[in-house]
């Protein structure tokens, strides 16, 4: 019988520089766990998902900033993080496009699932909204993520 190889032993170590951001990522994962286990009491059905989306957004943003804005992490590490699900590659791909710099989540630009094939309300620039209109989108609780805001 061949020796059992545990997952931990065969795993390759993360690329250089991971230890720098490990703490922050751990905090994010703790927050995520809390959000997952939070009670749904008194919340709307869709509301329970908001923190999940928000934390995902924050974490992706963090990695995006580190790699593209601050150039603090290396390409191999960035790839590794994407591969291991620390950041959402699709979301980051949108952020690189003009007009989508602050996009909150991918569902908010998905026009096919809406009645009038339009984007989410949070994509509407603030000046086009009515005065004093306070919005919060259903999919991720975003309060407005148009680039002009």
């Amino acid at each position: 019988m061949p020796p059992t190889r545990t997952h931990a032993r065969s795993r390759k170590p993360p690329p250089e520089g991971f230890s720098d951001i490990e703490d922050t990522l751990l905090e994010f994962s703790n927050k995520m766990k809390d959000a997952e286990n939070a009670s749904h009491e008194g919340k709307k059905k869709y509301e329970t998902l908001w923190p999940i989306f928000q934390i995902t957004h924050q974490r992706s943003r963090y990695i995006y900033d580190l790699y593209y804005e601050k150039e603090a992490i290396s390409k191999p590490l960035y790839d590794w993080l994407i591969k291991n699900g620390y950041a959402d590659a699709m979301l980051i791909a949108k952020w690189k496009k003009q007009g989508y710099e602050k996009l909150c989540c991918l569902r908010c630009i998905q026009t096919k699932e809406t009645n009038f094939s339009s984007t989410c309300i949070c994509r509407v620039p603030r000046e086009q909204l009515k005065d004093g209109q306070d919005i919060q989108c259903v999919s991720c609780g975003c309060r407005g993520c148009s680039s002009g805001d």
Binding site: D20, Q58, L66
Partner: peptide
């Protein structure tokens, strides 16, 4: 302060 932290934190 660690430069790897987030601003919010």
């Amino acid at each position: 302060i660690s430069p790897y932290h987030t601003w919010e934190k």
